[in-house]
Design a protein around this nucleic acid. Structure first.
Lengths: 129, 129
DNA sequence: CTATTGATCTAGTATAGCTATATCAAATTG
DNA sequence: CAATTTGATATAGCTATACTAGATCAATAG
């Protein structure tokens, strides 16, 4: 799977990396057990410090999406969200949806956009890894 | 409308203020034309610096949700999002939905949660201002 | 005119993000 | 066992962001 970073983005580099891996898992490009590149190699590819990649991996570990081993490296390992994780997620979703509502979008229009995005995320993405 | 801040939150204070006002507009507690408290007064109520409230208001102005006048103060004024704003919003939504998908939630389950939150946001909240 | 309110400027502190270097520890591999 | 790979951890320095503090300016409602 192809990973990229954008130094001009306001979004932190470790967050960009984390987000792309999350999307990769969501669409199935990164299946359970798939190894991620070693932090040093990915950092070298990006031309950034390996601590930054480390931070992204550590974040993914805390979120329950990867397992980290010495020598074996980082491996995709999904664990279902607990109640607290769901509550946190819904709080963030609530703010995002409120933003659209506040600016005049109808509930139907918002739901349609959610549906379209989920459709894309559900598309089987085999052979693109 | 009741506004609060939490100093122990990781979320920046100006962002907490902004998010609550966005939600207030979304649910209809803050209708078009409603004046927001003066920055100095709100800051005093919170026990924080008025520059922080100023930052929240300025953010809301940039987002097209309030108009700022001297002496008249900040007033709710909604403007519809343009294409760029929608694209930005969808990008953020995409990451959030991907997060849930990555951790095993089905598209139906995710849509149901979106629907439930929108339901709450649509509930007319008259008389609670 | 006066008082209120946002706009702007300077400045100081604390924290976050990123980099750089170095070392440690586990575990795979030969 | 020994060597190598890989994440884990520690220190330090730099820049940007978040927040505070105090002062001043400018529009404008009354």
């Amino acid at each position: 799977m192809r990973l990229t970073i954008d130094l001009t983005e306001e979004k932190p580099l470790y967050q960009q990396i984390r987000d792309q891996i999350v999307e990769g898992i969501a669409v199935g490009l990164l299946a359970e057990g798939t190894p991620l590149p070693p932090t040093r190699r990915l950092a070298a590819d990006f031309g950034i410090n390996f601590h930054t990649v480390n931070k992204a991996y550590e974040l993914l570990r805390r979120e329950g999406l990867v397992r980290l081993h010495r020598k074996r490296g980082a491996v995709v390992h999904v664990s279902a969200p607990d109640a607290a994780a769901w509550a946190d997620w819904e709080a963030r979703l609530r703010i995002l949806l409120a933003e659209a509502r506040a600016r005049g979008a109808t509930a139907e229009e918002i739901q349609e956009r959610c549906r379209r995005i989920l459709n894309v995320l559900m598309r089987p993405a085999a052979g693109e890894a």
